[in-house]
Design a protein around this nucleic acid. Sequence first.
DNA 1: GAGTTTGAAACT
DNA 2: CAGTTTCAAACTC
Length: 809
Amino acid sequence: MDSPERNQIGTPISKFEDSPVFNYINNLSPIKPVKSLHIAQTFHSLNFASIPSVFTSPHISSQKESRFLGRHHFSDFSKLEISSNDGDGGKMSTSFSGSVKLSDCSSASEQEKCDIGVSMEEFNVERSNGCSKLSVKLPQALQYVGSLGYGNPDNDTSCCAIKMETDEGASVDKLPQENPKEGTCSVETQGQYQLEQTKEEGSCYDWENLISDAAPDVLIFNSSTESVTCREEDSNMVDFDATSFALVSHPPQDEVGGLHNAQPVSSLHHDHQQQNPINQLEEVEDGEQKETDHTPQLLPSVYQNKQDTGDLSEKMDDKVGDCISLGKKVDTPQQRGMRRRCLVFDVGAQKKNAVDDSKSDSLNSMQSEGKCASDDKKLVPLRPGIGSSSQCVLPSIGLHLNALASTSKDFRIVKHESLTSVSRLISMPRSVGSFHSLTAAHNSANQSLAPNNAQGDLSSNGNAVQVMQDDLQEPALEIAEEFNQNSPKKKRRRLENAGEGEACKRCNCKKSKCLKLYCECFAAGVYCVEPCSCHDCFNKPVHEDTVLATRKQIESRNPLAFAPKVIRNSETILETGDEGINTPASARHKRGCNCKKSSCLKKYCECYQGGVGCSSNCRCEGCKNAYGRKGAGYAPAGTEEAEPEDEVSEVGEKDGIGKCQEIMEVHKDQQLIDAVLPMTPFQICRKSVKVSFFSNGKPPRPSLVTGGSSSSCVNTCQPLKKSDFLQHQLTFEKHFQINPEDETPEILRGHCSPGSGVKTTSPNGKRVSPPNRELGLSPGQRSTSTRKLILQSIPSFPSLTPYHQSNGI
DNA sequence: GAGTTTGAAACT
DNA sequence: CAGTTTCAAACTC
């Protein structure tokens, strides 16, 4: 099995040895770097192979999924691997290791364990198999492998190298033997096994070393700090040899690294997983020899972790810096692609991890929010540094999205969400998840209260998502800054200050236990988060069952209870039969308001709050809704602004039938747009439109089924000034260019917002300007509103479906 | 921050 | 379906 690879390895090794880190490691442990070279080389080749995959978006999703699935289907994995590997003895060995780990995972209840196992398996599979078969059988793992670049000659070489190592290492033989043990045993067993191995092999690892080598992942996994350590490891790797090492670690590390940099919290798991695979592979396959390789990287990190969490921030910074340096150092287009990819993966991975953690770990992690929060805080300071590098920042994008999803206004929440992954995950799945869905066929985000119905629609935008990540760096930085200020009160204040945009849902429920629609969080389909001031809150992941049951109950009463309250104009028109109002921006409240004293000029009015005009569905009295009075069509923004009250035309409500034509016209326009433009969140909203006419012109309240747009969307849009829908679309195509002021990707801004985005054509074919409003919003407000838009809109989608179906994988 | 107002949600 | 109560957000001071 000795392949030319070894020869190739030479260079990298030298670099390794030269690095201070390497020296340090050597001092710590007797292990010699020789074999590490092989490993590194192997990975390196893998990395190169992966490069091609980088450009293909599908991989990302696959990766995520693979991991996620992997956990659940470990047993299958082992089987598959075995079958595929039957041909080669060497391959068999590798596959075996993988299978073993898989079995571990399956047996192990802990996610961490599972994660490790999965990652291991993936790697093993890749190496051992190098075959497309595996990919087919194991889409998840395979995809990941595919990203590595199986088809490429490089890949083959890498595989060979691995095989050689396995063959060479006595560990290989041992692996099969141990498999039975591990199969039943948990990860811990693996650690022991490794220890035994070390002992047997004669390697003189200390307990610490063992930990780092064998079980670092397991031990450290959960804590965010550990992730940091991983990062350090990664960074160290990078330092060793920017070119070779960075590449080597990249496939996994990049993802991890990128995530870490950007999103320390969420990325943690990934890092561990990814790194673990490497380490484990080395350990398992190479046994003693490979250990040396690992030790250099692992030891430092481990030690650091043990020493202080307090230093984490510093470490993080260092790591970040390293990552950045890596990115810079290795800037070949390919690598770039890798990074991006990694980022993307990270995001997805994060979700998965978060989801997995939350779920598999069973609420524990979620419950331990407080703990997470602390970790988060630690991490927070680091972020700014992260922002320095584009790559690093990119990962953070995921957080940003999360923040957006959960609460457009407060990023602080985002932090919690990402870190804790518990409550806010819900939101994450939706927003991010939806986007993720783009990449990943199925988002696991079970936690999201509502299923990601929109995901499918969004999937088309996968590329856009990636772009967003790149573009969102600045926002990420802001987030980091915001994180620093984290008292709930401050958050609240901010929200209040933020102005109208309702960014995040934060409730203050006292008697409803956040299990009724009174609760904004619950109504929005998200779990309550720290910023909430609710009492006796049951709207938390811990009480998922209760939440679901209650939700079901409410939905049984009113299927549209969780549907967006505000409907896009086309929908509205159809539903309400109000066409008159149908200016493009004429979104309408699903049920209409019932205001009597507020004249629909205050937020008491849901229509007003949603930034939409009142419609025939409204039973309001003395309506002066600036966005459009009941019975009156939406007036062009300018008109309304000029004199909303003058318009008070109480134009009789048109009969739905009579307006059919207009409606149809609108529909046509919409269809046209849809056909031409790529699917955007906004579009999603549209699609949800249901056509239903009612003789009386008023549809039953629940008549509407809006798949996509959420009330939030509309709401958020409201602040937005009139902008062309087309323009937004174009913007979207441009890949979410970020407006410097808003920091929000234009996509987010415009798409969902019916108000802003919709410069659609009126029934007449004239362009209607959305209600601009009296609510003159400052740029900042707009941004918030836009953010909110995205997030909220997403949540609303899922609301119709059961929360936890997401796992459906 | 406390109290009031308001209208949706829930209940009867 | 209508009326009443409950609830929490919005608003005011």
